[in-house]
Amino acid sequence: MSGLQAYQQGLAVEGHNTANLATQDFVPQSASFNEARPAGTGVTLSTAARELSAAQDSGAAPSGTDPAASITNSLVYKLGFSLSAKVIQAADERLGTLIDIKA
């Protein structure tokens, strides 16, 4: 579940950055995925402002958001969300099989 939530929040960050693509002096955020403590119990997401030097890149928007990176990140987060959902579905199916065997 923590994977689903983290990827959903990552998509929200990229959506926010994309929505403010043309906003002058907007400081885009980046998502950083971290392993939850204790190890192996999930994933957490933290967001931080990106360096303003990104605004000086030739491909960056007036806000400093890099459209190509934002789109790429969105696709990665979408696929990660789908994968996390499939893991939960597989675990649910295995649990159902185990319950059927015990019954």
Rank of each mutant, 00 (worst) to 15 (best):
S30K: 13
M1N: 09
V13E: 06
P62A: 05
N34A: 14
L4A: 05
G96Q: 13
A54M: 10
A85S: 14
S84T: 08
T23V: 05
T65W: 07
A19G: 12
G80A: 08
S74W: 03
L52S: 00
L79G: 14
A90K: 08
S70C: 09
L11H: 01
A39R: 12
P38E: 05
A36G: 04
L52N: 00
Q5W: 10
G96R: 13
A12T: 07
A31K: 04
D66A: 09
A55C: 02
A91P: 02
A60S: 15
T72G: 06
A48C: 00
L79E: 15
S70D: 08
S84H: 06
T65R: 05
Q29I: 03
Q89H: 06
L11A: 05
Q29G: 06
F81E: 01
V76C: 02
D66F: 06
T41Y: 04
A90C: 01
N20E: 03
G59W: 07
S70W: 05
K78P: 03
Q24W: 00
A69N: 12
E51M: 10
K102R: 15
R37Y: 13
R50I: 10
D57N: 08
P38A: 02
Q29F: 14
Y77I: 02
T44H: 03
L52W: 00
L21A: 08
V27F: 02
R50W: 02
S63W: 00
Y77Q: 11
G15A: 14
V13F: 06
S2C: 07
I71D: 02
Y77D: 11
T44C: 05
K102D: 12
A49H: 08
N20M: 05
R37E: 15
Q89E: 13
A6E: 04
G3T: 00
V13C: 04
A54R: 12
Q5P: 00
D92H: 07
N20S: 03
G96P: 02
A68I: 15
Q5V: 11
A36D: 10
G40Y: 06
N20C: 07
G80H: 08
L11E: 07
A69W: 08
I101P: 01
I101N: 09
G15H: 10
S32C: 01
M1T: 10
A22F: 09
L79D: 15
A31S: 15
V27N: 10
P28F: 00
A103G: 15
G15M: 13
Q5R: 11
S82E: 15
A12K: 07
K78D: 09
A12C: 00
G40W: 03
T18M: 14
I99W: 07
S82Q: 15
P62R: 05
L95E: 10
S46C: 03
R94S: 12
